[in-house]
Simulated assay, not measured.
Amino acid sequence: MTDRDPLVPALTGVLVDVAWWLESCGDEEVDPDSAVKAMESVGGALLRLPSGQRERLVQVLADLAAAEEDPVQRDFLKSFPFAIGLVEDEDS
């Protein structure tokens, strides 16, 4: 897999879309405890990636945020690495 593999941004986008959905859906759509467990599982899996892959993921998220036209979705993309535990500073 190369650095230009389109699969990486595509899968990253899908992952963020699922996280967005889990955060924004109502209690009647998804049990809140189940949503939290799912997000903890996602965060745990991402934190187990080797550091180079985590750094690549953070860069892909930044690239997706820069290309996003919807300001709400752009803010979510920018905050995702901090919210999921990939970076310690929200401004990273």
Rank of each mutant, 00 (worst) to 15 (best):
M1Y: 07
M1H: 09
T2V: 00
D3F: 05
D3R: 05
D3T: 04
D5E: 06
D5I: 01
D5G: 04
P9H: 11
P9R: 08
P9F: 15
P9N: 06
A10L: 15
L11S: 09
T12V: 15
G13Y: 08
V14E: 12
V14I: 12
V14W: 07
L15R: 05
L15E: 02
V16I: 15
D17V: 03
V18P: 03
A19E: 01
W20G: 01
W20I: 02
W20S: 01
W20A: 11
E23D: 14
E23H: 11
S24H: 14
C25Q: 11
C25E: 14
G26C: 06
D27T: 13
E28P: 02
V30Q: 10
D31M: 10
P32C: 08
S34I: 12
S34H: 13
V36L: 11
V36D: 12
V36M: 12
A38N: 04
M39W: 13
E40T: 07
E40W: 11
S41N: 08
V42I: 15
V42W: 07
G43P: 02
G43H: 03
G43C: 04
G44A: 05
A45V: 04
L46G: 02
L46T: 04
L47K: 15
L47H: 10
L47R: 15
L47V: 03
L49F: 14
L49S: 09
P50I: 06
P50Y: 05
P50M: 09
G52F: 10
G52P: 13
R54L: 09
R54A: 10
R54E: 07
R54I: 06
L57C: 00
L57T: 00
V58T: 10
V58S: 03
V58C: 12
V58F: 05
Q59C: 02
A62Y: 08
D63A: 13
D63F: 06
L64Y: 07
L64H: 04
A65Y: 04
A67M: 06
E69D: 12
D70A: 11
D70T: 06
D70K: 07
V72T: 12
D75N: 14
F76Q: 03
L77D: 02
K78M: 10
S79A: 15
S79D: 11
F80D: 00
F80G: 00
F80W: 13
F80A: 00
P81E: 00
F82V: 01
F82Y: 14
F82T: 00
A83R: 15
I84A: 08
G85P: 00
G85W: 12
G85K: 06
L86G: 00
V87A: 08
E88P: 00
D89V: 05
D89M: 04
E90G: 02
